[in-house]
Design a protein around this nucleic acid. Structure first.
Length: 382
DNA sequence: AAGAGGTTCAACCGCACAGAC
DNA sequence: CGTCTGTGCGGTTGAACCTCT
């Protein structure tokens, strides 16, 4: 049996809202409050679908909306968060006061995505240049349409409800895991979030990365040299994160270990703010620290096509010599701990999933050739 | 001035989640 | 436990607007 339509299709006005309709809707909500959208049109005397009323109010009529162009600071934030969260516009918008998800989404689609496209094009980097890593080690991808968990929603009229742990099989990557990907490699941050280092067990037993399947925590094989990996699987009752907490930490400029704030100047953003290269604020991480990331002037410069001609991108934002040196350091680390970053392994060695996570300490110290640089940049931009 | 093509963004759509029953 | 309802998310559409020729 099909689902009942949200409203009667006949007699419903569609298209642009008139000033008069806006006035009616605003007046009604001011006197009756938000909610009960289905019955609102009838009660307010509007020939509109309830969803349309809600959308009009949320995206246009609300008094706390911020009008005007997206500022560079807001743009930076959008880029940061999109690199981590993907197309989760509502979540992103919740951290931009007065901005709506629709506005952010439109801005991204009409401005930012095109800029990134130009960067790729100018750098001759296809969007996908290699086989992706296994799901468990990928950065967040486009999620399917539909709602996010209610706990991820911005608080509105109703109280925050306690989070349910129920997950369906159709949602292989829990939100918390997606967010965890964002802070991958930040052991200190993870400890801060967990508040219980001891609960994580011995160092050799955990790994960073999203465990996309319950009970199928990837690469937990302790004998497979993945000692630097951390298992975070809610089913094991080990850790449970609220993604807002994680985002707040991500954006916490005062946190010296913050993946977005380390080794860049005031108000500057590392374009590599997403997980992989930016990892390393802890001593156990494989790139050592964030010094390999050149401070970029701003996200504007990062996104600006004019700055990205030829190899400018990699040269401007990544100190490859530093990467090389850190790689040598990591080589020693590998010798000692046989710890190796599975994602870097994938970038530098792997062309199939079988190689992911394999230890290859010798290979790590080798300088990157042009193709590898391109591949790395492509991955970071993807 | 006018038409073509490109861009922006408000609005719509289908779907999925949570809670009530 | 299954069904229904309310809600709101992300993707898409298309009218309005802008720019170029």
């Amino acid at each position: 049996m099909g689902r009942a339509p949200c409203c009667e299709k006949v007699g419903i006005k569609r298209g642009r809202w008139t000033a008069e309709e806006d006035q009616i809707l605003s007046s009604y909500i001011q006197s009756n409050g938000e909610g009960s959208w289905r019955s609102l049109p009838k009660n307010a005397g509007l020939k509109r679908c309830g969803k349309s009323c809600r959308l009009r109010w949320v995206n246009y009529l609300r008094s706390d909306l911020r009008r005007g162009n997206i500022t560079p600071e807001e743009e930076e934030l959008v880029v940061k968060m999109h690199s981590t969260l993907g197309n989760r516009w509502s979540l992103i918008a919740s951290h931009l006061p007065g901005r709506t998800d629709n506005e952010i989404k439109n801005y991204w689609n009409s401005h930012l995505s095109r800029k990134l496209h130009y960067i790729r094009k100018s750098h001759n980097v296809p969007a996908v240049t290699m086989n992706p890593p296994p799901t468990s080690q990928r950065l967040p991808e486009k999620r399917r349409p539909g709602r996010t968990s209610r706990s991820a929603m911005k608080p509105k009229t109703h109280k925050q409800k306690t989070r349910k742990t129920k997950k369906t099989s159709a949602q292989p990557e829990p939100d918390a895991n997606v967010a965890i990907n964002a802070v991958v490699g930040q052991e200190a941050l993870m400890m801060e979030l967990s508040g219980a280092e001891a609960d994580l067990g011995p160092r050799d037993d955990y790994y960073y990365g999203a465990c996309h399947e319950r009970g199928d925590c990837c690469n937990t094989n302790n004998n497979n040299n993945n000692n630097n990996l951390m298992s975070i699987n809610g089913d094991n009752g080990v850790l449970s994160f609220d993604e807002h907490d994680i985002i707040d930490l991500l954006l916490d400029e005062s946190d010296p270990g913050n993946v977005f704030t380390s080794s860049v100047g005031d108000g500057e953003l590392s374009p590599l703010g997403d997980s992989t290269l930016a990892r390393g604020s802890s001593e156990t991480s494989n790139l050592g620290n964030l010094d390999c990331l050149q401070p970029c002037r701003s996200v504007e410069s990062f996104l600006n096509y004019e700055h990205q001609v030829n190899d400018a991108l990699t040269d401007e934002f990544i100190d490859w010599e530093c990467v090389w040196q850190e790689g040598n350091k990591s080589n020693k680390l590998c010798d000692e701990k046989e710890a190796y970053d599975p994602v870097m392994s994938w970038l530098l060695n792997g062309d199939d999933e079988a190689t992911i996570g394999q230890t290859n300490c010798e290979k790590f110290g080798e300088p990157l050739d042009h193709d590898e640089e391109n591949a790395l940049v492509a991955w970071l931009l993807s």
